[in-house]
């Protein structure tokens, strides 16, 4: 069964002059709508053998000690638009350290690298679609877009779902961050209700006393279309 059409008005505008790099990297022609074929209705399958024992634990998967920063758990559930769990699907994250510095050779921000923080994490969701990472809260950082543009604290997320058509790359923000409404990348999303879906609330129920706070980020992938196409093409 094919997936529902993607609501392109809900997603960020490909071209938003406030986000400078999008000016030359966004297609000028409209996307060409095609019916889904085997290429889009299938996708790579990842298994437990793809995941290292510390891949979920950014507090431990780089260096020999604990990284500096606010210890947090980021967890949530991956479902489709019909609320069905997406089990055993790959979730990848990456982020800056607590000072807002990325472990990447092209990042030259003043804040130092942390020898105990890499910033990469990877898990499979469980049978009910749940995932969980341990990490530190990333710092905000400046970037060359406007004269004084700062990214709010954020964690990048990559999801595969069950088929290429569900592929999603996004960013999670933190409840209460005053930089979120000032961010030109956040603002590429026109609908404030869509932005709200990217803001993870503090989740004290999942915090562990004297250890870590927690934030909850649920993720929704495209759902299957229940109404068959009138003029389906070959390969659907």
């Amino acid at each position: 069964m094919p997936f529902r059409p993607r609501d392109r008005d809900w997603h960020p505008r490909p071209l938003d002059p406030q986000y400078r790099t999008s000016i030359t990297r966004s297609p000028s022609q409209p996307l060409l709508r095609i019916d889904q074929t085997a290429s889009e209705l299938t996708g790579p399958v990842f298994t437990a053998s793809d995941i290292g024992p510390l891949d979920h634990d950014l507090l431990a998967n780089h260096g020999d000690g604990n990284p500096i920063g606010e210890r947090i758990v980021v967890h949530g559930r991956v479902t489709d638009e019909d609320g069905r769990a997406v089990p055993h699907t790959l979730v990848e994250i990456w982020q800056a350290n607590a000072g807002g510095r990325y472990r990447h050779h092209i990042d030259g921000y003043l804040a130092p690298l942390d020898p105990n923080f890499g910033g990469c994490g990877r898990v499979l969701t469980d049978a009910q679609g749940h995932y969980s990472f341990r990490t530190v809260k990333p710092g905000a950082y400046p970037w060359p877009n406007g004269p004084n543009t700062w990214r709010p604290a954020h964690i990048h997320f990559s999801l595969f779902g069950t088929a290429f058509a569900q592929r999603l790359v996004t960013q999670m923000y933190f409840e209460g961050d005053p930089l979120v409404p000032r961010c030109p990348i956040v603002s590429t999303i026109p609908d404030p209700r869509a932005i709200d879906l990217l803001i993870a609330p503090l989740d004290m129920d999942a915090a562990t006393p004297f250890d870590h706070l927690a934030y909850r980020f649920d993720i929704v992938l495209r759902g299957r279309d229940s109404t068959p196409f009138e003029n389906r093409m070959e390969g659907n």
Partner: peptide, 24 residues
């Protein structure tokens, strides 16, 4: 429910998607 909206992968995507390429 609505699909979670996309955001750019940004310039540091290698850290998460190809950590060895990023040097992580």
């Amino acid at each position: 429910m609505k699909e979670t909206p996309s955001q750019t992968a940004g310039p540091f995507l290698h850290i998460g998607l190809a950590p060895q390429v990023a040097g992580v």
